[in-house]
Design a protein around this nucleic acid. Structure first.
Lengths: 344, 344
DNA sequence: CGGATAGATGTTATCGCTATCATCCAAAAG
DNA sequence: CTTTTGGATGATAGCGATAACATCTATCCG
């Protein structure tokens, strides 16, 4: 705390304090602090000096009340400790660079109730737009978003009933592609490791895609191991693969809801002396760094996490600036591709 | 956007709109929205209904201008895609639960310049406190923090000249402990893998601790492999261990600046048919999930990441509430311990 | 039954900034 | 030399909420 001689805590200086010291009006200080406004060089310098001497920092919350622009966008992701989503957050930050908008990040721990709380907390601060992960929200959360009067971007998914705009891909189709690719290599007895809770919609969709693809191929699709709620730990993958091999010892390939559980499964197999992919093949989802680095390197589905973030932020800023909002593509599909490596 | 019949975009409702509809004054609405204030049940219900009908959401930025409480604290971490730091963020969030304070998270990508930008951006929004990672900042960043008049908590480190309060540990001592533990098991020829850039102060301190411990033990301390700037990838760890084995083929144990590079090194050794720990032992730092799950399981230094966050947030709220700030411990040391596993 | 008491509500005055309009002045144009 | 023009600056009025104080009722008590 900055104290002044008499021992009381000094109030932080305001714009008027700066103005007085520089011998100008508050309005001129406000202008000097904003790019592209007409303030003479001499005045600007005097103001800069006053700011420096006083240690003044603009109070943006007061400013945004007046200008009706808060200068930030909200993004809500399930977990920050998941590089897929943090890549998306990076994409958003990067795309926001230079727009004068700042990112306010929140994470839900995969809980829709927590998401609802966050949506409300964010909207109370009047973001200029909001980016969400996935398309399932609580009814109240959805209503708040619809009524907020700001652009809403849902990502990482293709919701059946989008609130506004979407930047994502079909998790089901991505998993189908993986199954087909591996079936094309001759695998027939597929197992799936991953939860099915309502909590992880993307996980459920991947699992549904797994079943769909196998049914279409006329292969058995009943080897499904579920585990608890996300976030899915590596250790859970390890346990699940043990479980799977006990129930269906002749499983040829185990597909996992994410690279993290796939990695857990892979390590557990090695501990048990099973050769991957000879004794059992393993594939993941997400193309995390670990998939490219582990031994054997992991087959997985690459998803354009960073691009999702970039494009979501781009669509957001475009929507904000749009004169006629109708011209914008409401749905942007992002790419995914199977990355075949040594584990299959 | 919500549109009204005549085609114009409806302004979002304000508290006065709610008040009018409920037949009360704005002040009563404000009270009804705040816990523990006296509003009759009947009025409260009418207000709730009006809020519901209008889809009103409180404008907190206006409220905080008036009440001079913004209701959030800022935290700045190097990377969100690093479970050590995101655990700290979780600890902060959890400890803030129920205090009415919300976390505003920013990440620097290990750049002090970016940190300075973030500090300024955060302070413009008038947080009630700020939590930083590490103790090195730009001079301007430091000055802004000192003058902000809010509690500042530096974490993950023991700065020589703290700005205000500290919750952390000595990265150097932690690494020394690891060296001593392994020396106690008979290892003599130690190598170190990790950068030394000014950019990653914690990494540099770990390296300094490595050298210090070996010198004290009378063992050679010159086997140091550096690589680029953080964030350190697993792949860099893989390259570094190859480099190390070329230069000093008889290295017995490689200590890495983080579990992530240690993991990369471990996998690379396996690819080259080297047995860990028989041909070469490897240890990491941070006790990431991967260290407990990989094969062989990794020896590492466990740091109380989550606790750092919890205690930092705790100290922050205590400082905010403190009548006499002097009674609070300025420095809280958090624990670390060596976790011996199969890789050494 | 009058005064004390406390709960319920309203009124007024900001909070720190910026939008808007007004003013002033010097340089350019005619 | 007058008129036009636009850059530089100032004065004023909010933005949407809440703090602080003022009122006005019931209810309670001796």
């Amino acid at each position: 705390m900055t104290k002044i001689p008499n021992g009381k805590i000094a109030e932080p200086p305001t714009m008027s304090d700066v103005a007085r010291r520089a011998g100008v009006s508050a309005m001129t200080v406000s202008r000097a602090l904003k790019e592209g406004s007409h303030v003479s060089k001499a005045t600007r310098e005097r103001i800069a000096q006053a700011i420096n001497e006083l240690g003044y920092v603009l109070d943006q919350s007061a400013g945004s009340l007046s200008s009706r622009r808060t200068g930030f966008v909200a993004a809500i992701i399930p977990s920050i400790n998941n590089s897929n989503f943090s890549d998306t957050a990076r994409g958003i930050t990067d795309a926001l660079e230079g727009t004068g908008l700042q990112l306010l990040l929140g994470y839900t721990n995969y809980s829709v109730d927590r998401e609802e709380e966050l949506i409300e907390a964010m909207l109370k601060r009047r973001p200029e737009g909001i980016i969400l992960t996935g398309g399932s929200h609580t009814p109240r959360g959805r209503r708040m978003l619809e009524q907020a009067g700001i652009p809403v971007i849902e990502t990482w998914d293709r919701p059946a009933q989008p609130i506004d705009k979407v930047v994502g891909f079909s998790n089901g189709e991505a998993m189908e592609l993986l199954v087909e690719t591996l079936a094309g290599k001759g695998y027939q007895r597929f197992g799936y490791i991953g939860g099915t809770t309502a909590r992880d919609t993307r996980g459920s969709q991947r699992r549904a895609g797994f079943v769909r693809a196998l049914e279409r191929l006329g292969l058995p699709s009943d080897r499904l191991i579920s585990f608890g709620v996300p976030p899915i730990s590596m250790e859970q993958g390890a346990q699940a693969v043990v479980n799977m091999l006990e129930r269906w010892p002749d499983t040829q390939v185990a597909l996992c809801v994410s690279d993290l559980s796939a990695f857990g499964a892979l390590m557990e197999c090695q501990r048990r002396g099973l050769k991957v992919p000879d004794d059992i093949a393993i594939a993941g989802f997400g193309d995390y760094e670990i998939a490219a680095c582990c031994h054997p390197r992991m087959t997985t589905v690459n998803v354009d996490c960073y691009g999702i973030g970039r494009q979501a932020a781009l669509k957001l800023t475009q929507t904000i600036q749009a004169v006629s909002a109708e011209t914008l593509e409401p749905i942007t599909l992002t790419s995914f591709r199977v990355v075949e490596r040594e584990s299959t």
